Amino acid sequence: MTTYNSNYFRSGLKIIFDKEPYIIESSQFVKPGKGQSFVRVKLRRLLTGKLIDKTFKATDTLKSADIIEVTVSYLYNNRKFWFFMNNKTFEEIFTTKKIIGNSTRWLVERAICTATLWNKEVISITLSNFVELKVIETHPGLKGDSVSTATKQAKLITGAIIKVPLFIKSGEIIKVDTRSGEYVARIR
């Protein structure tokens, strides 16, 4: 395992801090007029996504984290575990809903995702920014409702319920932003 001196901390570097994996969001080397130089670092905890600020002496060192990101396809779930297939090795990996979080609302069979592994265990699943999903249930828009900001609720094939424009009908395919859960466009 590689050891990094704090002078070499850069954005994107994955390290072990307090026995957990972190990614460096930003770092700033500071050399004051008096005293020892130091490095101000913003770290994101990979297990929870929490951001922390930390100051390291110029002589501090940290070990690199054994973090691997692989492209996977969603297969199925049994309500306890969500199963994915590694697209290169065709190995099956699984994780719990706690790791996936609210992203389960956007998972459809064969959806391409990125799995982040630490010590060969899944610590996060990241979906693509946009998914195309079928609307299975929505009420028809009322005649005369032509205001561009008017919306109604629609149930998607995954069970998620989102707000869509009045012109969307049951059976149509729409594009959804997985980060915000908002309607983006109708797919023709």
Rank of each mutant, 00 (worst) to 15 (best):
E20L: 07
I187P: 10
T116Q: 05
L47T: 06
E25D: 12
K98N: 15
K14R: 13
Y74E: 01
L75F: 02
S180N: 09
K19V: 03
F84N: 02
A58R: 07
K98C: 03
S27F: 07
P32N: 09
W118L: 02
S128F: 08
N119C: 04
D145N: 09
G12H: 03
T158W: 01
Q28G: 07
L46Y: 00
I174Q: 09
K97T: 07
I24F: 03
L107H: 05
K63H: 08
R110V: 00
M85I: 06
Q28K: 15
A154F: 08
E182T: 11
K88F: 12
K50E: 13
A185H: 09
K143Q: 08
I67T: 02
I68A: 11
L133F: 06
F130A: 08
S37K: 07
D53K: 08
G12Q: 02
V147Y: 11
K14C: 10
F81N: 05
K97A: 14
F94M: 06
S26R: 14
R10V: 06
L51G: 02
F38P: 05
K54Y: 10
E91I: 00
R45G: 05
E182S: 11
T2H: 13
M85W: 00
T114H: 06
K88S: 13
N86G: 06
V184Q: 14
L156S: 10
F56I: 10
F81G: 01
S64E: 14
L47G: 08
Y22S: 02
K57C: 04
K97Y: 09
F130N: 04
T126V: 12
L62I: 04
S11V: 01
F56N: 04
K169A: 10
N102P: 09
T55C: 14
